[in-house]
Computed example of a mutant assay.
Amino acid sequence: MMKSNRGDYKFPGGGVEAGESDKQALARELLEETGYTDFVIRELAGQAIQTHPDRIEKGAWYHLRSH
């Protein structure tokens, strides 16, 4: 997890690329965001949902679902 500039903690961002499984995307994101190469992904634990007002576009909301 990473500490954001807002003082909260969150998972690193990223997404699933075409042709990737969720586990493959997680492994790639872990490598890209942390540099770690020695880890084991046993099973996906669930999802995190973030919803808050958009900081740029007034009246818009930001909604992100991470698996």
Score class of each variant (00 low, 15 high):
1 M>I: 05
3 K>N: 02
3 K>A: 07
4 S>L: 09
4 S>G: 09
4 S>M: 03
4 S>N: 08
4 S>C: 05
6 R>L: 08
6 R>F: 06
6 R>G: 00
6 R>W: 02
7 G>L: 01
7 G>P: 02
10 K>H: 10
10 K>V: 04
11 F>H: 02
11 F>W: 06
12 P>N: 01
13 G>C: 03
13 G>V: 04
13 G>H: 06
14 G>A: 06
14 G>L: 02
14 G>P: 06
15 G>Q: 06
15 G>W: 02
15 G>I: 00
16 V>S: 03
16 V>M: 14
16 V>C: 13
17 E>R: 14
18 A>H: 11
18 A>M: 07
18 A>L: 09
19 G>S: 05
19 G>D: 04
20 E>F: 03
21 S>D: 01
21 S>R: 01
21 S>A: 01
22 D>L: 10
22 D>F: 13
23 K>I: 13
23 K>L: 13
24 Q>T: 05
24 Q>M: 11
24 Q>V: 10
25 A>W: 04
25 A>C: 08
25 A>N: 02
25 A>Q: 02
26 L>I: 15
26 L>F: 12
26 L>N: 02
29 E>L: 15
30 L>K: 03
31 L>G: 10
31 L>E: 12
32 E>I: 11
32 E>W: 03
33 E>Q: 14
33 E>W: 09
33 E>D: 12
33 E>T: 09
34 T>L: 10
34 T>S: 14
35 G>V: 06
36 Y>W: 13
36 Y>M: 10
37 T>W: 07
37 T>D: 12
38 D>W: 08
39 F>A: 02
39 F>H: 07
40 V>L: 15
40 V>C: 12
40 V>D: 12
41 I>G: 05
41 I>A: 05
41 I>C: 08
42 R>C: 08
42 R>P: 02
42 R>V: 15
43 E>N: 12
46 G>T: 06
46 G>A: 03
46 G>I: 03
47 Q>M: 12
48 A>H: 11
48 A>E: 09
48 A>F: 11
49 I>D: 08
50 Q>P: 00
50 Q>D: 14
50 Q>N: 11
51 T>E: 13
51 T>G: 05
51 T>F: 12
51 T>W: 08
52 H>F: 15
52 H>P: 00
52 H>Q: 11
53 P>D: 07
53 P>C: 03
54 D>C: 07
54 D>L: 00
54 D>P: 04
54 D>Y: 02
55 R>N: 06
55 R>V: 04
55 R>T: 05
55 R>Q: 07
56 I>Y: 15
57 E>G: 03
57 E>M: 13
57 E>N: 14
58 K>S: 12
59 G>A: 04
60 A>R: 15
60 A>Q: 13
60 A>E: 12
61 W>P: 01
61 W>T: 09
61 W>S: 09
61 W>C: 01
61 W>F: 12
62 Y>W: 15
62 Y>L: 11
62 Y>G: 01
63 H>D: 08
63 H>T: 11
64 L>K: 11
64 L>M: 10
65 R>Y: 04
65 R>T: 13
65 R>D: 10
66 S>E: 10
